[in-house]
Amino acid sequence: MSGHGQAQRQLQRFAPSRARQRSDRLARGFILAATVIALIPLVLILYYLLSKGLSSWSPSFFTTDPTGNTFFAKASIGGIKSAILGTIEIVALASAISIPAGIGVAVWLVEYGGERLAAHLVRFFVDVLTGVPSIVFGLFIYIALIVGTGSSYAGYKGSLALSLLMLPVVIRSAEVVLQLVPGALREAALALGAPRWRVIFSVVLPTALPGMVTGVLLAIARAAGETAPLLFTAAATFKTDFNLGQFMNSLPVQIYNDVTSPTTSVVNRAWGAALTLVTMILILNLLARLVSRRSRLA
């Protein structure tokens, strides 16, 4: 027993001072607190979304178009059918454009560009492109396809704006995965006498595909939540229209328009739409996570 006490006292010479122990505890406390603080908004947003959004969900909410009525309390304001379908259509077309193009650029970077100056330039450019505000992509498409053409907003123009936004994300994530494809695999195929394009199509791409799905899903999720580039490319409308050449409604734009309404029921529609949108995006994110866990290239 006394040996113990003696022991402690002898090491005491080296023990950190009270002040040091206190600042250690304090700093660790702050760091933990900051982490908790970082999680609070997520919890609050999800809670608020659920409590506000669920009450406006009903079968008819998903099966009727918004009516545009915001004044007459008795009349129906409608649901979000056109917005859901519009978002799906616009994002599907944007994906159809940006995924092949993005993977193409990534293949060029990895298989042909290598360490050449041009490849480094493209990489840097793509990185910088990820930081360009989404509204600027909307302006680009507006300038190129609406100014001076005599035409107006259209769903496919929104898709083009979103595809610009998705491109850098797809390129960078696909590139990372392509680089993980073992060089030995390529060499094995080349040594069999296969030409490079066959190696790319029958060895490199199939190997990398599962890994690329993750990046692609995240890019889609990002595009689906974007409002700004659609404001003056696809605009907002009420009716469901499957023609991508026409004005097209979308969830984010409808939410944005509804937020500014003074009518409570319209604001509630925005909450319902927001819950729908977040659910769609979270499902995409979860899918991406599942796929990436399944397919570790290693």
Binding site: Q8, Q10, L11
Partner: peptide
């Protein structure tokens, strides 16, 4: 004679 793995011992010390 001080056991360094004694729970009362501060690892920093």
């Amino acid at each position: 004679d001080v056991d360094l793995y004694d729970p009362a011992v501060d690892v920093v010390a």
